[in-house]
Design a protein around this nucleic acid. Structure first.
Length: 572
RNA sequence: CGGGUCAUAGCGCAGUUUGGUAGCGCGCCUGGUUCGGGACCAGGAGGCCCCGGGUUCAAGUCCCGGUGACCCGACCA
């Protein structure tokens, strides 16, 4: 490919709305352009890499025995109504009407569609197991699109749905996908960590996320340095023994606390420590206000809370609701004497002589004792685990770091096959319901994550497996006929075996080098003064510092060597 | 949806305070000189100053109302 014929609008300056490295570099290297919030065009150079990632995913999925199909992304709402998710999905799902006023959906995920394919077409257990997948566009009206291609409203995802006769079959599929995912990410040059994850509103039992450790990651991961415990903070547990304090319960007492609302202010006011407080927070769960209490030095993990109370929708109450529930403005709530349901973290149940709000403006209560003064309707672990706490498995000190979720695998169970009434005839002549798993990879996000992990101050350093081109040839001066002729001869010859780009633009060498580095082509061949001097070419591997000189005669051999060496890095 | 910031040439920005002919750097086009890490000289093209209304002799600038984008919190590949 001639670079002069390609559309690669590289930028010297950083676009102002690009925040993180991958976004900046994708924009600067001319891989993507923004069309609207969370909507991106992949330009030719970017699309080449995207296709390579897709091809790796496709190869590995096919090798795993999965079957690719291509369903529509415009989906009649009836499928969503059937599964019950038409109402549950909320504003995140793009909804529209066709000319007949029929409700339609732009698919944010495809459980319903794949389940219906199986329902309509699989009659016998002999057709199972099946693992069906697509590499297709997804639509999600994200609350806040962010970080370029990392979190968009329209994006490409590989999603697979497995259907098995029984749980053992599902376990097998799940395990195959775990291995397949590791292979995919390895081949893309991406280091990932599998992490225990919450099953969210997808339903189901086991679930793992594939995380790329990164400071710009939107997920928090809790990890044990001693044993193998690694979990998303959403479901991470810690070892904690809550023992009832051996102190004399004192009579409850109202204290005037003007201008003290936050735990921090109250700690000063009462001259004590946060663990003597009961943090009382009003939430609205599926439209109903509830009071949630936790020890003052802990934070509420909303995912755990949501799971405990089996809510679909959970949000912090607004000021008006708080006033209605507690008779007081924000900052003075407590569970005492409330009419709403009370949910308590297990940390609260052992507390004595604790401090919390008085449900009265500018007043707090002292010496609150659980059981004596109030009781919870539901008790459970709803704490957000912090680094420094103890591992639930081995009690070592937990650490936390951030990660980008590039893949997710679930054991879905019977949620969709039940709700959508999938029946298959078994060996015994009786109908049964297949069990499902689902497995997703964000394609654009994977690509961006690779850049997050592979870059330097000059630009992207693509792994050769997904680089838009393997080799870039740089003739140093387009006015120098000898150099140009040689460069094109090399270009023609190498193009038979590799994907080669030649920078035939009439630009100065500096510009060409800068662009080559920015775009991140793994191997660079410079045809310049060393050719005039000694008939040799300069080879530079993008990820290495040094440059090597090679005689024209030995070029092909040397290139093959380097190419194989680069490829070997990403072999599985 | 709440809180904050912003919208002027392809990109990055100044000009808005105090209303008076639309600017700078980079990029782009033409010619020339250059040619191993984002060259130099000369000339040039490119603007509904986000949109709509208002005030005024006069609005990029002041007022009102929209729209869009970005950042911080709740969703997820």
């Amino acid at each position: 490919m001639l670079l002069s014929k390609m559309l690669v609008p590289t930028l010297r300056e950083v676009p102002k709305d690009a925040e993180i490295t991958s976004h900046i570099l994708m924009y600067r290297a001319g891989l993507i352009r923004k069309l609207g919030s969370g909507l991106y065009t992949f330009l030719p150079m970017g699309l080449r890499t995207l296709h390579k990632v897709i091809n790796i995913i496709r190869e590995e999925m096919n090798n795993s025995g999965a079957l690719e199909l291509l369903p529509p992304i415009l989906i009649p709402a009836e499928y969503w109504k059937e599964s019950g998710r038409y109402d549950l999905m909320g504003k995140e799902m793009f909804r529209l009407k066709d000319r007949h006023e029929a409700d339609m959906v732009l698919g944010p995920t495809h459980e319903e569609v794949f389940t219906s394919v199986v329902r309509e077409n699989v009659r016998s257990y002999r057709d199972l197991p099946l693992n069906l997948y697509q590499i297709n566009t997804k639509f999600r009206d994200e609350i806040r699109p962010r970080f370029g291609v990392m979190r968009c409203r329209e994006f490409i995802m590989k999603d697979a749905y497995s259907f098995d006769i029984d749980e053992a079959g599902l376990d097998k599929h799940y395990e195959i996908m775990r291995v397949t995912y590791r292979r995919i990410f390895k081949r893309c040059g991406l280091e990932v960590v599998p992490v225990l994850a919450d099953t969210g509103n997808m339903g189901g039992s086991a679930s793992e996320e594939f995380m790329v450790p990164s400071t710009v990651g939107e997920e928090e991961i809790i990890k044990c340095p001693k044993c193998d415990y690694v979990a998303n903070v959403e479901l991470a547990k810690s070892h904690y023994e809550f023992k009832e304090e051996n102190i004399q319960p004192l009579p409850i007492e109202e204290v005037h606390t003007p201008n003290a609302k936050t735990i921090e202010e109250l700690v000063k006011f009462f001259n004590t420590t946060p663990d003597h407080f009961i943090k009382s927070i009003v939430y609205v769960a599926d439209g109903i206000p509830i009071m949630v209490v936790i020890r003052g030095d802990f934070e509420i993990n909303e995912t755990k809370l949501k799971n405990l109370i089996k809510a679909n929708n959970l949000e912090l109450a607004d000021e008006e609701t708080i006033l209605k529930v507690t008779n007081a403005p924000v900052g003075f709530a407590s569970p005492i004497g409330l009419k709403v349901k009370i949910i308590a973290d297990e940390s609260v149940v052992v507390m004595k002589n604790a401090i919390s709000g008085a449900n009265k403006k500018d007043y707090h209560l002292k010496n609150i004792c659980y059981s004596r003064d109030f009781k919870a309707d539901l008790i459970g672990d709803i704490r957000k685990v912090k680094s420094g706490e103890s591992c639930p498995k081995c009690k070592a000190t937990l650490e936390s770091y951030r990660g980008i979720e590039v893949g997710h695998i679930f054991k879905l169970g019977y949620k969709y096959t039940n709700s959508m009434n999938v029946k298959v005839l078994g060996k015994d002549g009786k109908e049964f319901t297949p069990i499902m798993g689902c497995y997703g990879i964000g394609v654009g996000r994977t690509m961006a994550s690779v850049i997050e992990q592979n870059n330097d101050e000059d630009g992207i350093i693509w792994p050769i497996t997904i680089a838009p081109f393997h080799i870039i040839i740089v003739p140093i001066n387009m006015q120098d006929e000898k150099l140009v002729k040689t460069a094109f001869e090399i270009y023609e010859r190498l193009s038979e075996r590799y994907e080669v780009l030649i920078d035939d633009r009439d630009e100065r060498p500096g510009v060409k080098f800068k662009d080559a580095d920015l775009i991140g082509i793994p191997i660079r061949i410079t045809v310049g003064k060393t050719f005039h001097e000694t008939e040799s070419l300069e080879l530079k591997v993008r990820r290495k510092k040094d440059k090597i000189l090679v005689k024209l005669k030995e070029l092909d051999k040397k290139i093959e060597e380097i190419y194989n060496e680069e490829k070997r890095l990403y072999e599985v």
